[in-house]
Design a protein around this nucleic acid. Structure first.
Lengths: 128, 128
DNA sequence: GCCGGTAATGAGAATCGTTGTCAAATACCG
DNA sequence: CGGTATTTGACAACGATTCTCATTACCGGC
């Protein structure tokens, strides 16, 4: 049984208002900023519930934080990372998305998540 | 200037002996198990250096740990990994190889390496 | 070989994000 | 309304990683 508390709603709303990915900490900070006396643990729980119910996606940032985004907005992307200076460029990879899903399915795997990142030297670092 | 200490070598060797991805903690545990009095901080530093020099790849596990693996041995391939029981299936991804190279080039990046792995639930674990 | 500068080491503390605990608050059903 | 199980929230606990800093030991030059 799932209850409909204003806290849960607040998290859902706050998540929907952010265009991209947000960390749980950032969401909590934003909510407090907006006047909600909501607790940090509650934000984590609400986000976990949303992700579990498929209402949000979650992934790990390069720094190890868990990031969430409202599920509706498109924009799943990957990264092109300079292994010298660390700059990252966001890239799209629709082809790869489909390939990953297909490949997983062909081997009987379900609930596929994938890691697709390219490491290289950015133009600046290539020059030196 | 980079110094060649037995600790660094030990980390490099230990990483090379593991087939897939290993966490820093696991590597450290394995090394201690093997008799090395190596320190945890040193393992982290060695892994960070290896990753920085392109001698190792790193990625984040679904649980938020940093995982490392020795860098691309001859037969380049990717993995389909069950996040419940850990089984891995080797997969080929020629399409993705080309896509990665092209994408890197389009953004002016050179010497591209990539990490392409899919995590999911294997048939056995999907059933339960 | 031996020496000195200097980067690397390591033990423990500190930090950060996240999860657990548990009493108090409260949404839902009747 | 009243009962009850779920949720909340402050705080403690936790695990992974990073920092600190005194000590060690490479390495290049003599």
């Amino acid at each position: 049984m799932k209850r409909n508390t204003w806290q849960r709603q607040a998290v859902r709303d706050a998540l929907g208002e952010k265009p991209g990915f947000v960390s749980a900490q950032d969401l909590h900070a934003a909510l407090r900023e907006a006047g909600s006396p909501i607790g940090l643990a509650t934000v984590y729980r609400a986000l976990a519930d949303l992700a579990g119910d498929g209402d949000a996606d979650s992934l790990q940032s390069a720094e190890g934080e868990s990031l969430y985004r409202a599920c509706v907005s498109p924009g799943h992307h990957h990264h092109l990372i300079c292994r010298s200076c660390g700059t990252t460029v966001e890239i799209e990879a629709d082809d790869v998305e489909q390939w990953a899903a297909k490949t997983a399915a062909r081997h009987g795997f379900t609930q596929p998540r994938h890691v697709v990142d390219i490491f290289g030297l950015c133009p600046a670092c290539s020059a030196s």
